[in-house]
Amino acid sequence: MIRFVDVHKSYRVDGRDIPALQPFSLDIADGEVFGIIGLSGAGKSTLIRLINLLERPSGGAIFVGDTEMTALAELALRAQRRRIGMIFQHFNLLASQTVADNVAFPMRLAGERDAAVLRARVDELLARVGLTAHADKYPSQLSGGQKQRVGIARALANRPSILLCDEATSALDPQTTASVLELLAEINRELKLTIVLITHEMDVVRRVCDRVAVLDAGVIVERGAVADVFLHPQHATTRRFVNEALPEEAASELAPFAQVPGRILRLSFRGDTTLTPALGRVARETGIDFNILAGRIDRIKDLPYGQLTLAMQGAGVDAAMAALREAGIEIEELSR
């Protein structure tokens, strides 16, 4: 468990304190994938670096497990950092070392000298990230996605309990991003590793995170289970992120449906309700008519969900809404 208790952070610039993170408290549970989303400058890089104390908080306490990180002396802090892996947007591999030596590097730093032990662990890690054939190459000979896989293997070398991902997919193309996210999800599942990731892409959050916090100008404006935040964003910043991930939905809220008669409703289906034919049944029973304006079915991590924007007309609209809610479908009426 990672706990932030009344933590805040400001930077001193030209004798003035510039606040980067307003006081906040946050708990991240063992084994979950926790996303922090925000625009650049929102403070997310600072926030993730507080966990391994690459950045020191201006106040408050940070716990990793039972250890109060903020109270540790230099030597103990270095020992703790070895238990927290980290990967970076620009990979930050040692250009002068081979892939195998990069992966072995944290183990060597921790004092492992036995070549056979190192070799065995490096082989195991490279096999996990699918780079066995590239052990003796140098980072400059690899693609971006491969470099990030080396970064992941390196971060796992000392068997950490936490993995911090600093914009790990921001420098990668969409396909490579998908495969790296898949690898992270697999690691989370199989190694029971807690993953904290920061990103500016809602899609990254949707694919791998269990919970998310939305950061806006140094303030956590919204937090919760990804499905809740994603399907019912409360704060304007969150809505913007969600709309970026669902461009067609964003358009559907606006003008084009001014001519369509009826009440405009957005139905959200989650999990099992996504797969039941509730809408047709309710329409028959209540005699309403509907017109589909926009819709999609996708997944939030492993949870299937659907969203449907309808124009509903007829005498039974209220009854239909009640029946749909009964069937476990969430309904929101959109104002024109």
Partner: peptide
């Protein structure tokens, strides 16, 4: 690159290890 130094700090490297390695 500053990032490489930061990465080794995150791995728990000491100052001497950062200079040397």
């Amino acid at each position: 690159q500053q990032g490489v130094i930061e990465a080794s700090q995150a791995m728990g490297a000491s100052l001497w290890q950062i200079v040397r390695h």
